[in-house]
Each structure stands twice: as structure tokens, then as C-alpha cells.
């Protein structure tokens, strides 16, 4: 069985390099047969695609998608420098 440490590194690299994702900010943790994806993205579609690409890269492992959506709020208070 591939060492979890290397599985995590491989998934993180795939998420950065796969044209469907090109996500550099997703944290990948592997514990036994469980793969945890964490981070923030701006759309549900991107969230789903990241999970799909991670699943393809980790056959036989269980992927938990804990990625949250960034909510872009109306501009807030201004800061006086």
C-alpha cells in the first residue's frame, strides 16, 4: 500500500496540474483509507470537480470533501491608513 504521506502529495500535485482543477490552495490529508480535502473555492461546480479529480487519483480510498464555498460579500467598511 502506498504511504499516506505520498498519496497526499500526489493528490495535491494532481489538483494543481490537472486542467480541470488548477487549484493550488487545497489541503489534502490522508488518514488510513480516508482522504480529506479542505480549502475554499468560489463555486459549487469547482468544489465538485476537485472531488472528482481527487477520486480518480485515489482509487480504493474514501474521499471526504470538506471544501467550503467562499462567499463574496458586498464591500465592507473602508480602512483609513
Amino acid at each position: 500500500m502506498e504511504t499516506p504521506h505520498y498519496v497526499a502529495a500526489r493528490v495535491q500535485r494532481v489538483l494543481a496540474e490537472d486542467d480541470r482543477t488548477t487549484e493550488l490552495g487545497i489541503r489534502v490529508d490522508v488518514r488510513g483509507e480516508h482522504v480529506f480535502l479542505r480549502g475554499q473555492v468560489p463555486s459549487e461546480k469547482r468544489r465538485r470537480v476537485i472531488e472528482e479529480v481527487a477520486r480518480e487519483a485515489t482509487p480504493g480510498l474514501r474521499v471526504h470533501n470538506e471544501i467550503t464555498l467562499v462567499e463574496v460579500r458586498e464591500p465592507g467598511e473602508e480602512e483609513h491608513l
Binding site: V70, E71, V72, R73, E74, P75, G76, E77, E78, E79, H80, L81
Partner: peptide, 10 residues
């Protein structure tokens, strides 16, 4: 910043 943009006043 979690907002559409930040505003800084100089």
C-alpha cells in the same frame, strides 16, 4: 478579504 473588494483611504 471575503468581500468583493477592500477600500483603503490615503
Amino acid at each position: 478579504i471575503k468581500h468583493a473588494y477592500a477600500v483603503y483611504c490615503l
